[in-house]
Computed example of a mutant assay.
Amino acid sequence: MTGDTRADAYRPRRDRLWFTRSRGYTVFVLRELTSVFVAWSIVFLLMLVDAVLGGSLPEFAALAARPWMIALNVVALAATVFHAVTFLNLAPKATVVRLDGRRVPAWMIQGGNHTAWALVSLLIAYVVLRS
């Protein structure tokens, strides 16, 4: 039953670039889109683990050395860093930490998160690069 009612007649225009009206919305959408590159990073890591365990590391290294694969992984690294930084910057809004009855300032939570991230990254870099 399709009657010609006012509800059928009115169709608001869809603004496909709604998120460009505000910096906060734009960062939100970009952070969500970077999840695709975070997922690619996980897939690439699993491919590496499979190559190491399966004995096909030379074939994986040949694939990883291709220019398009290097470019994809550089973009994925940049997107993953953006995703991590914006995610860690949101932590004070999502987590209320109280110390001695007072709320811990946002900069302390952000600083702690970024410091922990940097220390874990340095530890991983040390383990990987020491050989």
Results as ranks from 00 to 15, higher is better:
T2A: 13
D4I: 14
A7H: 08
Y10Q: 14
R11A: 12
R11M: 06
D15K: 01
D15P: 04
L17K: 11
W18R: 07
W18H: 08
R21D: 11
Y25G: 05
V27P: 02
V27M: 10
V27T: 14
V27C: 00
F28W: 13
L30T: 06
L30V: 13
L33E: 11
V36R: 12
V38N: 10
W40V: 14
S41V: 06
V43P: 01
L45F: 10
L45M: 15
L46A: 15
M47W: 09
L48N: 03
V49M: 11
V49T: 11
V49P: 00
D50P: 00
A51W: 09
A51K: 09
A51M: 13
A51Q: 11
V52G: 02
G54Y: 07
L57Q: 05
P58R: 04
E59F: 02
A61H: 07
A61M: 11
A62V: 09
A62E: 15
L63S: 08
P67K: 11
P67R: 13
M69L: 11
A71W: 04
L72C: 07
N73A: 09
V75H: 04
T80S: 15
V81G: 00
V81L: 14
T86G: 04
F87V: 09
L88H: 02
L88I: 02
L88G: 01
N89V: 12
L90Y: 04
A91D: 02
K93C: 05
K93S: 09
K93G: 00
A94G: 06
A94F: 06
V96W: 02
V96Q: 03
V96F: 05
V96R: 13
V97S: 01
R98I: 00
D100P: 04
G101W: 00
R102M: 05
V104P: 01
A106P: 02
W107T: 07
M108F: 04
G111M: 03
N113F: 14
H114I: 07
T115L: 15
T115Y: 07
T115C: 07
A116E: 10
A116R: 01
L122W: 07
L123S: 06
L123Q: 07
Y126E: 06
Y126F: 15
V128A: 13
L129T: 14
